[in-house]
Design a protein around this nucleic acid. Structure first.
Length: 590
RNA sequence: GGGGGUGUAGCUCAGUUGGUUAGAGCGCUGGCCUGUCACGCCAGAGGCCGCGGGUUCGAGUCCCGUCACUCCCGCCA
């Protein structure tokens, strides 16, 4: 092949017997028998076993070399004897008898081992990320990521999307997350911001007549991290389309996502048609707008059944406050005292008063609640949830807004504990009909609940005639296995409707012109109806790599405190640099 | 900003009711070993028990504080 190798480390087989070959790679593992020495040589592609015996001139070098050193060997491919074949290795039928070994780069003692990839603390893995990245699992995840992105480009191109680049240094925008700011040297006292998403740019590209846009877009938000949220930066498959309705976007994006998942999912199945679940239905069935549909549990409102019943804790609350609801969470095969008590103590740990339940056995319901509400109501509940002997049902009572997130985690907990989750599936759904506005709990003012640039359902008319909290947006999310992949919307491309929409949220015309002048301007000179979506690339790869942490699919991630332990960012800078920018550091006092 | 978890050898972890010299496996170093592929066997080095303070005759162990990492809440149009 070249000066360093004739073959890669996954290539040699019986066809190459007696060939003289050259291989280069890392010393993965040594097995030294004194009179005979084996080295597994590793490169990006695979492993090949090297053999040395004391006759080889390089035997001494090979004995001394440390793991993870980079070497080049010259030798002859020989057939392994029948009992020495390693079936786990694609090259396991042969080995290379080494005549010459040259050390290209010697490794010191390793701070983290590559071979066997034992668990190591994450801060060490991040500090020595280049070693961590050599380890098989992470190495393969990053290769998978590359292949997925490559395939995405192919599929997008097939669907007539053009790929664009948009600015990284742009202007701060008032809505949304905290911006990363870059001080301007030329315009002292002014700042660029890193884009939270290329939202306005992609809409401007539609105004510029490009019809279909996509970008593997870096997005920057200065917010705190989660396991499924990197601090600082992440990538979106950013999509925008002209002359489309919400349905057109579903019809385009759903097959694209299915294609990507089918290609890379190995053995997991994808649901055939992504159900469209209205936001409010999702909340009342699953307690969240990112439901994990692998859990076959749907909650139901059972307030009417408890009203006037003998279970005073619930029936009194219902009478005292119109907004109080009782929800039931069915638990198939959860009808054991041990399980229900376990759930109850878990609920108490979560700061709840408890988690009441009915267990069904011998054709009837048992437990304190069943006793208090009587046989009729107990069997009404049984029928409502189609329950049977050895099933149970849990109850949550209160104001839904307050218990929503608890109900969602209870549902998830029940599903996990009873092993009801089907791990072999990707269950996608669309969440639709998001409310346009919501009431800010602190200020009691009306806020945009999601993207302020979404087109309200019913256009100007509904903004003018409906209670703002009733207005739905042409806004949607796509969710897979309980992970929100993306939000999207049909955009509000009409200046009159846009101004009205902002007016309702308390912005006057001048503010809108100030902050979104370019877009508002563009809309004045002929802009097609358009909309889009932006699925998170990191999360897609995370799902496909079947890991539960984003750092397992990002080559050089930051830790949870938003530090890059490898490059040592963020770091201090010189007085000179600070002065140049015309800014001052306020020292934190101890 | 708040809450939970963790912190003992390079790593993973054990360490009894507060009681002598803090252990094991992996890794590392040295030695032996011609068919291993998680090679094997023998020996050795390696510890501020995260850090600071307190209680006690005595603290890895109890108390207070603090730091680091991680998970979650807030936040993420």
């Amino acid at each position: 092949m070249n000066e360093y190798r004739t073959h890669k480390c996954n290539e040699l087989g019986l066809d190459n017997i007696d060939n003289s070959v050259k291989l280069s790679g890392w010393v993965h593992r040594k097995r030294d028998h004194g009179g005979l020495l084996f080295i597994d040589l590793r490169d990006n592609f695979g492993l090949t076993q090297l053999v040395f015996d004391p006759d080889s001139e390089s035997f001494n070098d090979a004995e001394k070399i440390r793991n993870e050193s980079v070497v080049m060997v010259k030798g002859k491919v020989i057939r392994r004897s029948e009992d020495a074949i390693n079936k786990n290795l694609p090259t396991g039928e042969v080995e290379v008898y080494v005549k010459k070994l040259e050390i290209l780069s010697e490794a010191e003692d390793l701070p983290i081992p590559v071979f066997g990839e034992p668990d190591y603390p994450e801060d060490l893995r991040l500090k020595y990320r280049f070693l961590d990245l050599r380890r098989e699992t992470l190495h393969n995840n990053i290769i998978l990521r590359s292949e997925i992105i490559n395939f995405i480009r192919e599929v997008m191109k097939e669907n007539d999307f053009l790929e664009f680049q948009t600015p990284i240094l742009t202007a701060s925008s008032p809505e949304g997350a905290r911006d990363f700011l870059i001080p301007s040297r030329i315009h002292k006292g002014k700042f660029y911001a890193l884009p939270q998403a290329p939202q306005q740019f992609k809409q401007l590209l539609m105004a510029s007549g490009f019809d279909r846009y996509f970008q593997i877009a870096p997005c920057f938000r200065d917010e705190d991290a989660r396991a499924d949220r990197s601090p600082g930066e992440f990538y979106q498959l950013d999509i925008e389309m002209s002359f489309v309705t919400q349905e057109d976007i579903f019809d385009t994006v759903e097959p694209i996502l299915r294609k990507i998942f089918e290609k890379f999912s190995r053995d997991k199945k994808i649901n055939k048609k992504f159900p469209k679940i209205p936001f409010h239905d999702s909340l009342s069935k699953y307690g969240t707008d990112k439901p994990d549909l692998r859990i076959p549990i749907e909650m139901k409102d059972v307030t009417e059944i408890f009203k006037g019943s003998g279970f005073k804790i619930f029936s009194d609350s219902i009478v005292n406050d119109n907004n109080v609801r009782v929800w039931g969470i069915p638990a198939k095969k959860g009808g054991s005292r041990a399980f229900c008590d376990k759930m109850n103590s878990w609920a108490i740990e979560q700061g709840q008063p408890g988690l009441g339940y009915i267990i069904y056995k011998d054709k009837k319901g048992v437990g304190p609640i069943a006793k208090n509400i009587g046989e009729n109501r107990t069997s009404e509940i049984k029928n409502l949830f189609s329950l049977d002997d050895s099933d149970s049902v849990f109850f949550i009572c209160g104001i839904p807004d307050n218990f929503l997130s608890f109900s969602a985690s209870a549902r998830k907990r029940i599903g996990t504990e009873l092993k009801l989750i089907n791990e072999d599936r990707y269950e996608f759904c669309w969440i639709v009909d998001y409310p346009m506005y919501e009431l800010n709990k602190d200020t009691k003012k009306i806020d945009f609940s999601h993207n302020p640039f979404s087109m309200p359902k019913g256009g100007l008319e509904s903004l003018e005639s409906l209670n703002p909290l009733e207005v739905k947006a042409q806004q949607y999310d796509i969710v897979c296995n309980g992970i929100e992949l993306s939000s999207g919307a049909i955009r509000n491309h009409r200046p009159d409707i846009l101004v009205k929409a902002f007016e309702i949220a308390g912005y006057d015309l001048k503010e809108v012109e100030d902050k979104f002048g370019a877009m508002l301007d563009a809309f004045k000179y002929g802009t097609p109806p358009h909309g889009g979506i932006a699925p998170g690339i990191d999360r897609i790869v995370m799902l496909l790599a079947d890991v539960d942490n984003l750092r397992e699919v990002i080559a050089f991630p930051m830790n949870q405190q938003a530090q890059d332990l490898l490059m040592n960012a963020p770091s201090g800078v010189s007085e000179e640099q600070i002065k140049d920018l015309g800014i001052k550091i306020i020292k934190k006092k101890e």
